[in-house]
Amino acid sequence: MSRQSVQANRPSHAAGLNAVNSAAAAAKFLEKKKEFDAVSALQRASALYLQRIEGLANDCETMADAGKIHGEVLEQWPRMFQILNLFLTSGEETQEESGSSTAQPGHGQRLVRIPIEELQDASEQKPPPG
């Protein structure tokens, strides 16, 4: 003989508590979602910042290597001028020993040959612009 509970006819307070808990959980969820979105945005911004810094680091390494090479080239210029001076001096000594006052070809008199004839021929063959 069981009798029905009186509690079944009374309105439940659990539903009200459940709604309050649900609203609190939803508010907490929204707060955590905002935090997560902010952290995600910060992570993306940090990744972009890292890429930029790495690019700058690569550029700095390239400039440092170029500076080293530039320094090595500049270091060679005094030696090159010394060699050219020795070459020209030896050419003058050879001229004095031979007694000729005319410059011999190949003794430092012409260091660079500019093909003027070829340039003139090429410019004459070009049709005038316009």
Rank of each mutant, 00 (worst) to 15 (best):
L30D: 15
L30F: 15
K32R: 15
K32T: 04
K32Q: 09
K33A: 06
K34A: 15
K34M: 05
K34H: 02
E35R: 06
F36Q: 05
F36A: 03
D37W: 08
A38C: 02
V39G: 02
V39R: 13
V39Y: 08
S40M: 09
L42M: 08
R44S: 05
A45W: 01
S46P: 01
S46G: 04
S46Y: 01
A47C: 03
L48N: 12
L48W: 12
Y49K: 15
L50N: 13
E54V: 08
L56R: 09
L56T: 04
L56I: 08
A57H: 02
A57K: 15
A57C: 09
N58C: 02
D59L: 11
D59P: 04
C60F: 12
E61P: 00
T62V: 09
T62S: 11
D65Y: 13
D65F: 10
A66G: 08
A66I: 01
G67K: 06
G67M: 09
I69Q: 13
H70Q: 15
H70K: 14
H70G: 14
G71A: 03
G71V: 02
E72P: 00
E72K: 10
E75D: 07
E75C: 07
W77A: 06
W77D: 01
W77Q: 09
P78D: 03
P78E: 02
R79D: 00
F81Y: 12
Q82H: 06
L84E: 07
N85R: 10
N85E: 12
N85G: 14
N85D: 12
L86V: 13
L86H: 07
F87E: 08
L88S: 07
L88I: 11
L88E: 11
T89E: 10
T89F: 05
S90K: 12
G91L: 03
G91F: 01
E92N: 06
E92D: 11
E92G: 08
E93V: 09
Q95Y: 14
E96D: 14
E96F: 08
E97K: 12
E97D: 06
S98F: 03
S98V: 02
S100D: 07
S100W: 02
S100H: 12
S100N: 06
S100F: 12
S101H: 05
S101K: 10
A103R: 10
A103L: 08
Q104I: 09
Q104F: 14
P105R: 05
P105C: 00
H107N: 09
G108W: 01
G108V: 02
Q109W: 07
R110Q: 13
L111F: 02
L111T: 01
L111V: 06
V112F: 06
V112C: 00
R113L: 06
R113D: 04
I114H: 04
I114P: 00
P115M: 04
P115S: 04
I116Q: 03
I116P: 01
I116H: 00
I116T: 02
I116W: 03
E118K: 09
L119T: 07
L119M: 13
Q120M: 14
Q120V: 15
D121C: 03
A122C: 01
A122F: 05
S123R: 11
S123A: 14
E124T: 05
E124S: 10
